[in-house]
């Protein structure tokens, strides 16, 4: 691998350094702890990014490098497992499979390595990706009518009717309480 030139001038070098740090941060967020492996991938990504920036000078190195990183992860998953990831949502699912198959831990040596992967690793990735919710097995829950007390039912109909005039309902309750209090006082009054 030839060392990239990264534009040459100090400002450009600084931008590529920023791209390096960003990609490194992203790989860390993916759980890639081994510095050697990380460094190898970063260089791979930056190579691809530099080619693109060379073609389109308006592109920002950091942005392009991150695009390449995300693309690299999705492509690698597709090639390694044979699972096509046509959209971002499925790409996210593929990313999740990395974690479920414990790529960042148990199989970190193979993380983003050149395919083909050993069968064990590829199978772990595929089975993690293919996991589904449990098969639906429905059980109907239909409420049965309960034979409620007709007096209470009627009382509720009346009570609900009062909801149309909430002020009247409150006045009624307060009047009832007032009446109760008055009755009690009258009872005690000698």
């Amino acid at each position: 691998m030839n060392p990239p030139s990264f534009g040459g001038d100090p400002a450009s070098i600084e931008e590529w350094n920023e791209a390096f740090v960003t990609v490194e941060g992203y790989l860390c967020s993916l759980g890639m702890k081994n510095r050697l492996l990380r460094s190898r991938i970063i260089h791979q990504v930056l190579d691809r990014a530099e080619e693109r920036v060379a073609r389109e000078a308006a592109l920002r190195p950091s942005t392009v490098a991150m695009e390449e990183t995300i693309r690299l992860v999705a492509e690698w998953f597709s090639v390694s497992t044979g699972v096509h990831l046509p959209d971002n949502r499925l790409a996210a699912r593929g990313r999740l499979a990395l974690l479920l198959a414990d790529l960042p831990g148990r199989y970190q040596n193979y993380f983003l390595s050149r395919p083909p992967l050993p069968d064990e690793v590829a199978d772990a990735l595929r089975s993690s990706y293919l996991n589904e919710s449990p098969v639906l097995d429905r059980r109907a829950m239909t409420p049965r009518p309960i034979a409620l007390n007709p007096i209470m039912r009627q009382a509720t109909v009346w009570w609900e009717g009062l909801n149309r005039t909430p002020i009247f309902k409150r006045l009624l309750i307060l009047s009832a309480l007032g009446l109760l209090g008055t009755l009690l006082l009258l009872f005690f009054w000698r």
């Binding site: 309960i146 509720t156 609900e160």
Partner: peptide, 16 residues
Amino acid sequence: AEFCALPDLPGKEPFG
């Protein structure tokens, strides 16, 4: 599932 699905009570909350 057969017997314990809850029907709504007549009226509205809080009593129904």
